[in-house]
């Protein structure tokens, strides 16, 4: 029997904790700056999917994130869960990047790591475009599987079979490697990090650091190459509702029947 060693790269992102985002009393807007930073919750499912593949296939799992050095805790969390290594992709040149250069950067990093499989959450809770995983696949010309609820490694065929949610149904798709997989949120229950891994991750582990130059994309990232820009922002006015609270179910039934009469 031949042994294959897969390299599985997991993209993770640091986001403001959606449950802790408060309202700025001066502007009345959501104040994201003061919210604690956490790992994007769907990415935790991607880590679990990666580690579950490693449970059955000889594999090396590497977490990667693009962000400032203060994003390092999400990599430590990935290491604590069981990743073998982690890469911090950080450079001022990335500032202002939309999803086009962001997915280019992650695509180059995945290539440089020799990825057979790239995993990520289906979208981030802060910008929720869901564009980065397909973007990574597109930049590298790799196969892609999104909204994935289950994975079945097929090392003997050099393929990955996945169950996709296709809205109202499911399909099983086999993809050639390398493949980019976006996992559906809530489908992979992340394993707890053992204490000794946590201690190692926090005290001894140092991530690999790469800049735009290390990835040879210095002139292909940032604001200048981003096709989209924000033209303006306006506060959403909530729809006016009556906001009446009634005492009994009968009172409520009365109002519901009003709708039809």
């Amino acid at each position: 029997m031949t042994t294959v060693t897969w390299t599985i790269v997991v993209g993770v992102k640091q986001v403001p904790d959606a449950d802790e985002v408060g309202i700025d009393p001066d502007t009345g807007r959501l104040d994201r700056a003061s919210a604690p930073a956490v790992m994007n919750p769907p990415d935790r499912g991607a880590l679990e999917a990666a580690l579950s593949i490693k449970d059955v296939v000889d594999a090396r799992v590497v977490a990667m994130t693009m962000g400032p050095p203060m994003a390092t805790p999400v990599l430590e969390e990935a290491i604590a869960m069981g990743c073998d290594d982690a890469v911090l992709i950080t450079d001022r040149a990335f500032a202002g990047s939309d999803t086009w250069p962001t997915s280019l950067t992650l695509a180059r990093a995945a290539e440089q790591l020799g990825a057979d499989i790239v995993l990520a959450g289906e979208e981030t809770t802060d910008s929720s475009t869901g564009q980065v995983p397909p973007g990574i696949a597109a930049h590298n010309g790799w196969a892609q599987l999104t909204y994935v609820e289950a994975v079945e490694p097929r090392p003997e065929e050099n393929r990955l079979v996945a169950t996709r949610d296709v809205e109202g149904g499911h399909e099983r798709v086999a993809a050639d490697l390398p493949v980019v997989v976006a996992v559906a949120y809530g489908e992979f229950d992340p394993r707890p990090a053992p204490l000794h891994r946590k201690l190692y991750a926090e005290n001894d582990f140092e991530p690999i650091e790469w800049t735009a130059e290390d990835l040879d994309i210095k002139d292909e990232v940032g604001l200048d190459v981003s096709p989209t820009s924000v033209g303006g922002m306006e506060t959403v006015q909530p729809v006016e509702r009556k906001g009446e609270v009634v005492e009994t179910a009968d009172d409520l039934a009365e109002q519901i029947t009003e709708v039809y009469s």
Binding site: D98, T99, W100, S103, S128, T129, G130, Q131, P134, G135, A137, A138, H139, Q144, T146, Y147, R164, D165, V166, E167, P227, T228
Partner: peptide, 23 residues
């Protein structure tokens, strides 16, 4: 913006360097 649309839109926008806005 279905699973299908959100799945393949990037495979058009990336190689053509188009601007792609979600949702």
């Amino acid at each position: 913006g279905t699973h299908t649309g959100r799945d393949f839109a990037g495979r058009v926008a990336v190689p053509t360097h188009a601007g792609l806005t979600a949702d």
